[in-house]
Simulated assay, not measured.
Amino acid sequence: MIDTPTIDPRTLRGVLGRFATGVVVVTTRTDDGLAIGMTVNSFCSVSLEPPLVLFCVSRASQLHPLFTGASHFAVNVLSEAQRKVSLSFARPGRDRFKDLTPDTGRLGAPVLPDALAVVECTRASIVEAGDHDIVIGRVVAMSADEQGLPDPLVFYGGAYRRLDPQHADWWTAFA
């Protein structure tokens, strides 16, 4: 057996907080039709063929059984202008839509107005991972804001941050 050092969770959180992430709100509906959603920054692309994405949900969250049991969900990519939406969906409780009137996506999940992009998925699988579960979804529909490139909502070092477009280095990896 290999002896591994004890990793302090607060230190780990601080170190991992050095990785900048986008912010999304994942939404679905309960069996009785209630719209639910939560702010997530553990979202990423998994595969292009087949088209798969993932997000993580804490097993301690009251929303955990609703998201891991949902047959479908929508991932709403937030813009800088949607900080209040992010904060609203990050707070405890289930009634997070009280100030919003969402659209309904192709699969029935709530879709937030003015999202930069929306990725609609059917649940492909759930993977246990420590104190979280990884929800993998198969992409079945998607859309993106066609009005240029509004600033995304970015999280880094425990705080929302802004990108500086003045220092953007526009390049294409596949050019």
Score class of each variant (00 low, 15 high):
75 V>L: 12
108 G>A: 03
114 D>I: 04
69 G>N: 08
155 F>G: 01
155 F>V: 03
114 D>N: 14
135 V>R: 07
77 V>H: 10
144 A>I: 08
60 A>H: 13
100 L>A: 07
122 T>E: 15
149 L>A: 12
96 R>Y: 06
118 V>D: 04
153 L>P: 00
135 V>H: 11
63 L>C: 01
105 G>P: 00
70 A>Q: 07
89 F>R: 09
151 D>R: 15
118 V>M: 09
55 F>I: 01
94 R>S: 06
109 A>D: 12
85 V>G: 00
91 R>L: 05
146 E>G: 06
136 I>V: 15
81 A>C: 00
108 G>P: 00
82 Q>L: 05
128 E>F: 04
90 A>D: 05
148 G>D: 11
68 T>E: 07
86 S>M: 12
119 V>Y: 05
123 R>S: 04
93 G>M: 08
127 V>R: 15
60 A>I: 08
107 L>K: 06
103 D>C: 04
128 E>Q: 13
154 V>W: 14
84 K>S: 09
137 G>K: 09
61 S>A: 15
94 R>D: 08
125 S>L: 11
151 D>L: 14
117 A>W: 08
132 H>G: 02
142 M>R: 09
57 V>W: 13
141 A>C: 04
90 A>P: 00
75 V>N: 03
102 P>M: 10
70 A>T: 07
75 V>K: 09
119 V>H: 07
118 V>W: 05
105 G>K: 08
89 F>M: 13
148 G>I: 07
124 A>W: 08
121 C>R: 11
94 R>Y: 10
65 P>D: 11
113 P>W: 11
66 L>H: 15
70 A>Y: 05
59 R>K: 15
